[in-house]
Amino acid sequence: MTASVIEATSFPDLAQRYRVTGVPKTVVDDRVEIMGAPAEDEFVAQVLQAGT
């Protein structure tokens, strides 16, 4: 697993492309969107959903 943090105000075009309307927002493999900061087990479950 690899991870990039993207500071949205420096990259407004990316924020638009990934439809960032609030932060934090996590996009897994450009497919699954995770809004906010869910509990760890919920976050892991969504990552697994994207990765299978």
Partner: peptide
């Protein structure tokens, strides 16, 4: 343990603001 079951690399993009 759960993440060890991933069979390929996944990439997270985490958008933040200062």
């Amino acid at each position: 343990d759960a993440l060890d079951t991933l069979e390929r690399n996944v990439h997270l993009r985490v958008f933040v603001t200062p």
